[in-house]
Structure formats: C-alpha cells, structure tokens
Design a protein around this nucleic acid. Structure first.
Lengths: 229, 229
DNA sequence: GCAAAAGTGTTTCGAATACACCCATGA
DNA sequence: TCATGGGTGTATTCGAAACACTTTTGC
C-alpha cells in the first residue's frame, strides 16, 4: 500500500494574526517580510516550523522574537494549505490569532523588526493569502468573543468600563447600550473595581477595574452571552 | 535571514474522526492501518496530503475511498504537530471531524477497507495520538452541537423526534426533558413533519420529520441554544 | 385492560432589551 | 454655569427550565 518514502514533503509555517487595541481602534501588527519572494511587502508575523518544535511552539517563538512578549493569548484556528498559496514552493501555514496588550508591546519594542500597528480597517495589502487569513481571524475573534471573555487579553491590567465597551463595539462592529453592557459584565463577576480613577478621558473620571484572575480562569470555558444579538 | 532552502520539510497527513449514530449510540468509524509502523492496529481514517491537493481535498478523497460517500459534513478542527508524534518520520496531521449518516454508509460499504464502527465509549486503543484526537473531536462536536444544528447530519433523511433527542443526549452525555426539547427544536422552524409514522419503536408510532433544507442552510451560522445549560 | 412509548401545556424564573436621567468635575 | 463623559434603575418581553398527564395501539 502507501509508503512513507514515496510521499511528498512540504514546508510548514505558522502565521500569527496579532490583534491589539489602543483604546479606540482594533489594530493589527504587521511586519515587512524579510525574504524573497515579496521581500519588503507587508505580511503577518510568521516563520517556519523548526525540526524540534510543534507549530504551537513555533508560534510562541515567532511572537517572542517579533514582539518581545511571552505568555501571549494564542489560538490556533485554521490551516491554509492550497497547493499554490506560496508561489516559490508548497508551504502549509498553520494560522493563529494572538491577543496582546498593545501597551506592553510598545514598552518592549526594539526596532530590529520592522513591525508596525495598523488599524484593522486600514491596512496595506498583504502577501499571499494573508488578507484572507485576517478576514477569517476577525470572524473567529468575533465569534469567540461573543461567547467567551477573551477580549480582556487586549487590555492593560487596569482598564475602565468605557474602554472595555469600546473594545467590544470595535470587535463586534456595532453600538452597545452602556447600561445593559455594564450590567452584563458585572453579572459575570469577573471584574473588581479599584479605588483609582482614570481622569484622562473626562473630568469626572472613570473607575479602573481589574480582572479577578481566579474567576476568569474558571469561567473561561463557560458559554456566556457577552454581545447583544 | 531565513531562506526556504535551509528549512526542514515534513510529511503532512489528514485524519478524520468519523461520527455515526445508529439510533442508540454514538459511533466511530475506525480502520485497520495498512502500513508500517503499527500495521493492522486500529486507527482513524487518514492519509497523506498529495502534491496537487489541499488538506480539505485530501480529507474528502480519503473519506470517499473509505466510506464510498461524498458530500459529507467535514470540519477541520486542529493540527497535531508534536515532533515525535509519528515514530518513523515527522508528520503533521490536520484533523477533521466528519458526520455521516450511518445507514447510507452501510448500503455503500464494500469490504475492501477493513473499516468498522465502534461505540465511542468502547473503542480499541488507537495508534499514535489518535486517542487524543478523538477526545478533542468529541469535545468540539459537543461544543458546536450546542450552538449549531449540525447533528442532523448524522440522521437519515426521515427521522423521529425521539431519535433526535437520543442523539442529542448521547452527544451531550446527559438527559434532556422531552417537552422542552420538542418545543426548542420546533421553535427553530427547521423541521417539517411528515404524514408517515415510524412504528418500529413503539405501538403508537412516532411521526417522521425531515429537514427544511432552505431554513437549515440559512440558520446555520446563527447561534442557537440547543442543549440545556 | 394494560404496558410502553409518544405527544402535549402551564407556570415560574431569570436574562435580555429598551429606554432617560443624574452625577462629578474642570474649564 | 455649563459642557462633557461617567454612571445608574425600571418596566417589559422573551426564552429557559421545571414539572405530569393524556393518547395510541399492539398484545
């Protein structure tokens, strides 16, 4: 029957759709590609899966290298494997979406990697099928965020409810009623209000909140209804 | 920087977790592996991704070959890529779960492939990491079935409500209240009641239903609450 | 007439929605 | 004092869940 030896072998890569949130807009971290073909074109953060590592490990490594960050929220969501997707040589790509605290990133940034944040609605054209990946990742993020409290991963340790709501609105691409949103978020029991206020956005100031880590981790798999509709 | 040429190449396979339902139990289609290593051991249905095909196409091809069926519900759900998962040579596997009408399968079966249905709770040990794949697929199926009407794919064209309910209970591994279940399913508007009754299960007989194909396809992406809790 | 499965209706509760005003403060 | 954004409460509706009896028919 079939034997291993006669079977074709392929390159395997990982590509990460890295989401960030600057308080107003959902953003995407892109890099200028460092190798041919399409050198210097904008691309997702990615790399080949090395001999000793799993795709998950490769994604972690590649993210660390490009953002300086570890412990990032990462989710594998789709394999892209059309035979012709890479014009040079057949390459399969395991796609991940990553959620990172954009502020953490900025402080650790060094300029070795030509990475740049783009508003997700105003990004350059990307190489290969990366535009499709972004579209798919966004859909997936929306789906997941409607049911699970993952968006907190995009915020700093301390954040305000208005910030949180804007983030949900951005991801879901729709307006949310503040009173209902507040009640829903509070009813999850995931948030702890701090004494401190953020006075940067208004005169009155908005209370900071932080995640209740224990409840966050235990509620994580539970299905919630976080976005209206 | 990195060049394609220096990068390692791997075998890429697909593996399908094929679910079926015989009216009582959730079942799994397994085959005896036809090549070394672990020849003759039970394994998921799988095969290598050929040079001219995508993983999705490979999965379709492999399923056709092993079940005789086309147009099967297929969903890619995870890549398994630990370096040591195949002891002979590094192989990444793209895992799919498939839902098939077990009756259709039986009529088209020919005995070229040593395939056999096993109750999902009473299956033999599988090769490599296939047991893990099954566990993961089951979890995924449960998750998806709680929100989307995919379980109809496991039933014949005509089916009864008691059958449907047992299926939901099997997948979810819990009892469901018949009255609430009926109301919930009816409220989706997906079912059409036929005149005919199935008298095999009881003296009174249970009405057959069929899917309203149009509504099924249009409701498919919508999030529903099909399983209690 | 009785056993065995199919089918149906009501009440209760909680969650989701729609909706509008007061609060705190810096300028 | 007023403009700006932050914060809160209520009534209504809808869906989810809990719960038990009647129907059909073959034996």
């Amino acid at each position: 029957m079939i034997e291993y030896s006669s079977q074709p072998h392929y390159l395997v890569a990982v590509d990460c759709i890295v989401f960030g949130f600057d308080g107003t807009q959902l953003k995407l971290l892109l890099v200028r590609r460092g190798l041919e073909p399409e050198i210097n074109q904008w691309s997702l953060i990615g790399g080949f899966v090395g001999a000793g590592e799993s795709p998950d490990q490769a994604a972690i490594r590649v993210l660390k290298k490009n953002t300086g960050l570890e412990g990032i929220y990462l989710e594998q969501f789709q394999v892209y494997g059309e035979p012709e997707r890479d014009p040079i040589e057949r390459t399969l790509s395991v796609a991940y979406f990553a959620l990172i605290d954009i502020n953490k990133y900025q402080t650790q940034l060094n300029s070795d990697f030509y990475a740049e944040w783009f508003p997700i609605n105003d990004k350059p054209k990307l190489i290969f099928d990366h535009d499709t990946m972004v579209t798919d990742a966004r859909k997936k993020l929306r789906y997941k965020a409607a049911l699970h409290p993952i968006l907190f991963e995009l915020l700093p340790k301390k954040f305000t409810l208005p910030q949180l709501q804007i983030l949900f609105e951005e991801v879901n691409d729709s307006k949310i009623d503040t009173r209902n949103f507040t009640r829903k978020i509070n009813s999850t029991g995931l948030l702890v209000r701090l004494e401190e206020k953020d006075r940067s956005g208004s005169k009155k100031g908005a209370y900071y909140f932080k995640l209740d880590g224990k409840k966050y981790r235990s509620n994580f798999q539970q299905i919630l209804q976080l976005i209206p509709g």
